[in-house]
């Protein structure tokens, strides 16, 4: 019960952190509060909540440690992959906004939400593929962020 409570608190913390990060990356600060808030909710649910549930993490330092270190097992691998690709999708979702097509979906945060969903979708397929074929089992041993972060 205490763990669940901690997890909920951490999810709310991450919600605020993701809100701040999306504002720092260019989202409107106050004027579109509802949209930005919903976007960070979606990100939290799709990217962070699985990590909290499966890996029992309740601290941002712990989260960063887990994300940047080589995984212990395939479940760990899958969850972290999902976390990364979902965030990457959300990040890449901002690309079509400046295009001058004048479509109604070309506004904050529609494209980013779509990017998040795409990232989540792709992440699930990829992790299913890894799980069923096991060909990429060594893929994460040479971890990308190990040297950088």
């Amino acid at each position: 019960m205490e763990k669940l409570w901690k997890g909920v608190i951490f999810a709310i913390q991450m919600l605020v952190v993701l809100y701040v990060i999306s504002v720092l990356l260019g989202a409107p600060f106050i004027s579109n509060f509802e949209q930005t808030f919903m976007f960070s909710c979606i990100l939290t649910v799709l990217a962070v909540v699985p990590v909290i549930l499966y890996l029992e993490i309740d601290d941002i330092f712990q989260l960063l440690d887990v994300v940047t270190q080589p995984p212990k097992d395939s479940l760990h691998n899958m969850i972290i992959l999902q976390f990364e690709i979902t965030l990457l999708g959300a990040w890449l979702g901002a690309v079509p906004i400046p295009l001058d097509w004048n479509r109604e979906w070309q506004i904050w945060p529609t494209t980013c939400v779509l990017g998040t969903f795409c990232g989540y979708f792709i992440a699930n397929i990829v992790s299913y593929g890894i799980q069923s074929t096991n060909i990429f089992s060594r893929y994460r041993k040479s971890h990308r962020f190990k040297n950088v972060l």
Binding site: L24, L25, G26, D65
Partner: peptide
């Protein structure tokens, strides 16, 4: 809208720095 590319890159770099210092 070339500024959007540079702003987004700069912001991403700074957020990366921020996360790195948190880590």
């Amino acid at each position: 809208e070339e500024q959007e590319y540079w702003y987004f890159s700069l912001n991403s770099f700074l957020v990366f720095q921020l996360i790195k210092s948190v880590k």
